[in-house]
Design a protein around this nucleic acid. Structure first.
Length: 707
DNA sequence: AGCACGCCGACT
DNA sequence: GTCGGCGTGCTC
């Protein structure tokens, strides 16, 4: 694992000193006041206060989020019983004192985090304005998790709490949650026996141990049930379990498998599909301890499962596991945090493995859970490649835009079942090459790659934007350009015309098909939207991924392999005639990994390379982006841990922005990630405390998109 | 972040 | 004499 972060520091987040310059008298005065805690705090208005614990420490939702501190309020006697830790309250915040009277102040939502006998705030306390609900939603363990996530990402607690606690739906709250069901029996291991250490993993869970594994699932349709079996096994051992999946579709598959194994009532599905009220109802059932197994998408990573015994994540390479809202926590990191802090078992599963997954194994923190080689061969389809040279030699392909191998495979397979055609997503920009020699087409001015932004448009440079109307090839003098990935959508249409008696189904952004039947059909899908074929696809054509491989992106190879393998895993085994044709150079590492079906080996080699180059996740990084002056000011302000590298700054594109931005990367060796996050947080607070207009500045731990 | 208090230039 | 510039500091 990234293994470096020790447990987050406990205790309230006190802001660091705001910097010198105060008048001595003022300091003395403050200290003296702070040293005499009142038996009972003063309040404004003098309303009757609660007897026992008259102070409520409150996390105010949107006041001074970046300062990351709690505020104390007086608890009126009437609210004494309701204002328990964890409940939502409303408080007046930002009031001014005018002639001894408080004026103004706007109502903010917040959470009571603690009831206390007194306050260490010297001034008079404002009373809670209202207890919104008596439901203790921000429970102590959930608060602790949020605190740790905030620290891990150099973010603010209030931001994380907003991600972790769903908005209140009064109606859902009124209804009682069902009584917990008795603990069911453990399901049989079934297909888990296909993995060498699979039964042992289940046995350890059943014993109540906390086994940790990176699971390389065999291609084919069994993984949802296998994942459900793991969750059910944890439940049978009397523990709670949580699985996070990248999308509603895959979550629904695991949900269905769980219902199959356990019947209804033992688990909930936490996805956006249910609608806010139903989702909150289910979340409450979890929070109240009625239900101990949760299957869901990203936001479910915070689900307050009682007595959590297992956290599982499926397909951690999927970008939707990264939360887009500040501080952009990644489900993998949050679940790793939970596994460590809540002492649970851990399962990271997928058809492929990320570098992070490989690192968990490499460090010894998790064990590999994979099938033996012969099992893999028996489950995987036959993978064939068509490289650039093959295509150049292939006269038929030049006329028809698709290699003859792809035609043959499609034609043969359509006699036996559906054929999947994976095409790039919309908005993807095809790169251009020389039609004669296939060399990539480069800009004459800056050598950037030429692109066509809209079909039929003039080619232009992807770096400098200069149009390339009179291009000629530097290699061979050719002057005709050709899309290096054939216009995939057009190809799909042509395929449809070539097989007029075969129905064409499409699955993409707007309409995603869950499944297709076993009848011959051409199924055109974008990555991630591939329907599951009930009896497996007879073949797949992979026309996507190409463009990725040309990019200077750290994850390009991993991501290409991931997309290909996810589609190829829906194809029947080679033994049943399942064939995959991938349009890519057979010499490339991810292509070879696909052909040999060795995603783990690929991830291990990527990991070694990252270590050598001191790239994440072996090193930890943070990105600071903003206007050059703001970036420079921040660098000046922040006190970085020993041994921090500074990379850049480099200009970054601001599509809608007015002024140019730049980005700076900080890099620290493994083990210093927490120190880096702490430094950034301190820097952010110091910056906020400064006077003057504040330019926008983005801080991000572990940026996923570094070139 | 908002929001008010504070101390210096062009208006009735 | 006053209205208003936004620099500075505080918010339980």
């Amino acid at each position: 694992m990234s293994g470096d972060e020790g447990p987050g520091r406990e205790g309230a987040a006190e802001p660091p000193e705001a910097g010198g310059g105060e008048q001595l008298a003022l300091i003395r005065d403050t200290v003296r006041k702070a040293k005499q805690p009142r038996a009972k705090p003063r309040t404004w208005r003098g309303a009757a206060l609660a007897d026992g614990l008259p102070v409520a420490r409150v996390l105010v939702d949107k006041g001074l989020v970046h300062l990351d501190q709690f505020f104390d309020y007086a608890v009126p006697a009437a609210m004494d019983a309701d204002a328990q830790p964890g409940v939502r309250v409303r408080v007046r915040f930002g009031a001014r004192v005018v002639k001894g009277r408080r004026e103004g102040g706007t109502l903010h939502d917040g959470f009571v985090v603690e009831r206390r006998a007194d306050s260490d705030y010297a001034g008079p306390l404002a009373p809670l304005a209202q207890v919104l609900s008596t439901e203790p939603v921000l429970t102590e363990p959930l608060l602790r998790l949020c605190r740790q996530v905030a620290d891990r990402y150099a973010g603010a607690l209030a931001d994380v709490v907003q991600l972790a606690v769903p908005p209140r739906m009064a109606r859902a709250e009124r209804d009682p949650s069902p009584d917990p069901l008795p603990t069911p029996a453990a399901p049989p291991p079934a297909t888990w026996s296909r993995y060498a250490t699979g039964p042992a993993y289940l046995q350890a869970l059943a014993r109540g141990d906390t086994p940790r594994a990176v699971w390389l699932a065999l291609p084919g349709p069994h993984w949802p049930r296998e994942l459900a079996t793991v969750l059910a096994t944890a439940l049978a051992a009397g523990r709670g379990a949580l699985a996070v999946l990248p999308d509603g579709r895959s979550a629904a598959r695991v949900d269905a498998a769980l219902t199959d194994l356990l019947g209804p009532g033992h688990h909930v599905l936490l996805t956006a599909d249910a609608g806010p009220e139903e989702r909150y109802r289910r979340w409450l059932a979890v929070s109240r301890g009625s239900v101990k197994v949760v299957v869901g998408t990203r936001a479910a990573m915070f689900a307050p499962v009682a007595d959590l015994g297992l956290v599982a994540l499926w397909d951690d390479g999927d970008s939707s596991h990264a939360e887009p809202h500040a501080p952009q926590p990644h489900a993998r990191d949050v679940l790793l945090l939970r596994a460590r802090e809540e002492r649970t078992a851990f399962l990271l599963g997928g058809i492929t493995t990320t570098v992070e997954g490989a690192q968990l194994v490499d460090s010894g923190w998790a064990l590999p859970l994979a099938a033996a080689r012969d099992r893999v061969r028996a489950a995987a389809p036959l993978v064939r490649t068509v490289g650039d040279l093959d295509q150049a030699r292939d006269e038929a392909a030049r006329a028809a835009r698709l290699p003859s191998l792809a035609w043959q495979v499609t034609r043969d397979a359509l006699a036996r079942g559906p054929v999947l055609v994976q095409v790039p997503r919309r908005g993807y920009v095809p790169r251009l090459g020389c039609d004669t020699c296939r060399a990539p087409a480069r800009c004459a001015a800056c050598a950037g790659p030429l692109e066509v932004r809209e079909e039929g448009g003039t080619p232009a440079c992807g770096w400098c934007g200069r149009p390339a109307a009179d291009w000629h090839c530097q290699e061979c003098g050719g002057f005709r350009l050709r899309a290096r990935v054939v216009g995939a959508r057009r190809t799909a249409e042509e395929l449809g015309r070539a097989f007029p008696r075969v129905p064409v189904r499409t699955s993409g952004r707007d309409t995603v098909l869950a499944t297709v039947g076993g009848a011959p059909a051409l199924v055109i899908a974008t990555p991630g939207a591939e329907p599951v074929a009930e009896e497996g696809y007879a073949a797949a054509l992979l026309l996507d991924g190409w463009a990725l491989l040309g990019r200077p992106d750290l994850r390009a190879a991993e991501e290409a392999l991931r997309r290909w393998a996810l589609a190829a895993a829906l194809v029947r085994p080679a033994g049943e005639g399942g064939t995959v044709v991938v349009l890519a150079e057979p010499t490339l590492r991810p292509v070879q990994a696909l052909v040999r079906w060795d995603p783990a080996g690929h991830a291990v080699r990527e990991l070694a390379e990252r270590a050598e180059l001191r790239f994440p996740p072996v090193a930890r990084m943070a990105a600071v982006s903003g206007p050059p002056a703001a970036v420079a000011e921040f660098v000046d302000l922040v006190r970085l841990p020993e041994g921090t590298d500074q990379l850049g700054p480099v200009p970054v594109r601001r599509p809608a922005g007015t002024e140019p931005w730049e980005r700076l990367l900080f890099r620290v060796p493994p083990g210093s990630g927490a120190a880096l996050a702490a430094a950034l947080k301190a820097g952010r607070i110091a910056r906020a405390a400064r006077s003057g207009p504040t330019a926008p500045l983005q801080l991000r731990m572990d940026p996923p998109d570094i070139g």
